[in-house]
Each structure stands twice: as structure tokens, then as C-alpha cells.
């Protein structure tokens, strides 16, 4: 199935968990995740299944004012 991660197309198997997808993508700590604009706590990564067309945001620390 096709999803987007940080706006880029990403292909993965059906019914894949968020945690597995982030592993496949190569996400590096520290980060936080949202799916379709909703925050998903890291503790729910294994339980959450990502669906076709979902938009995943993977955010990490950066400089800020």
C-alpha cells in the first residue's frame, strides 16, 4: 500500500503497524509522530495500523526561536 511520510510517497505492506513502518523508513530518535494530523503517542506504535493513503508526519528537534 502507499502512504506518505513527511510528504513523500512510501510503500509498505498492508496492515503494517506504525512502529514497523517507522523502522522500515529508518526513523532516528528522538521523534514524535502524527497520522493525518492527529498525534500518536509512541507507546501506541505497535497497536496502530497504518492505512492506505495515510499521511504520517515524523518530527524531530530543530532550532527554534
Amino acid at each position: 500500500m502507499k502512504i506518505t511520510i513527511n510528504g513523500q510517497l512510501f510503500e509498505t505492506i498492508e496492515h503494517n503497524s506504525l512502529a514497523n513502518i517507522l523502522l522500515e523508513f529508518g526513523a532516528t530518535e528522538p521523534f514524535a509522530v502524527a497520522i493525518n494530523g492527529e498525534f500518536v503517542p509512541r507507546s501506541q506504535g505497535q497497536a496502530i495500523t497504518v492505512k492506505q493513503g495515510d499521511s504520517v508526519e515524523l518530527l524531530s528537534p530543530i532550532q527554534g526561536g
Binding site: 513527511n6 526513523a27 518530527l59 524531530s60 528537534p61 530543530i62 532550532q63 527554534g64
Partner: peptide
């Protein structure tokens, strides 16, 4: 010190910043 979050880009750049902070 103020910080923010943005889309993860590369492994090194943001990581060095956060480690310093």
C-alpha cells in the same frame, strides 16, 4: 532555550543540535 520540531531530514544535522542542547 527555545526549540522546535520539524520533519526529520537527515540523521546528523538535527541530532547534533539536540545533543548540544
Amino acid at each position: 532555550v527555545t526549540v522546535s520540531l520539524r520533519r526529520q531530514q537527515s540523521v546528523s544535522a538535527g541530532d547534533d543540535f539536540w545533543q548540544f542542547i
